[in-house]
Amino acid sequence: MYSEKVMEHFTNPRNVGEIPDADGIGEVGNPVCGDLMKIYIKVKDNVIEDIKFKTFGCGAAIATSSMVTEMVKGKTIDEALKVTNKAVAEALGGLPPVKMHCSNLAADALHAAIEDYKRKKERKDVAEQK
């Protein structure tokens, strides 16, 4: 039911963990529904220098989380924002149709982390101006 690529990422997920001093944290999903993804990013000069994830969920949830971290590590914020859930699924060689809606949320978690980073940065910039 899952592609080889999905199983490969599921078996050996990349970038699992937390970043204690993360610049941005994004969380999507809900444990009640069976999926919760949390993505941590460290940003330097507008580039995602480090990224880690923690995911509660099915095989697709874990594989997409792993894949998205691999896709954007070392990329600029703007490049990362262009990554969609669909692109993550495609990079994994596709997902079973039933998984496309419920478990394909990794790009959303990434975008949430970037938004969090931007919010924090704005606050910091304002504070510095004062």
């Binding site: 899952y2 199983m7 599921f10 078996t11 529904c33 069976g34 999926d35 509660f56 969920g57 099915c58 095989g59 949830a61 874990i62 419920c102 478990s103």
Partner: peptide, 25 residues
């Protein structure tokens, strides 16, 4: 607690263990 059934089944399957779960997936 704290984990999801399908990923548990997939991991068990990789070790040759066939079981089932009541998770949504």
């Amino acid at each position: 607690k704290y984990i999801e059934g399908e990923s548990l089944l997939l991991n068990l399957d990789m070790k040759g263990i066939c079981a089932s779960s009541g998770s949504a997936c």
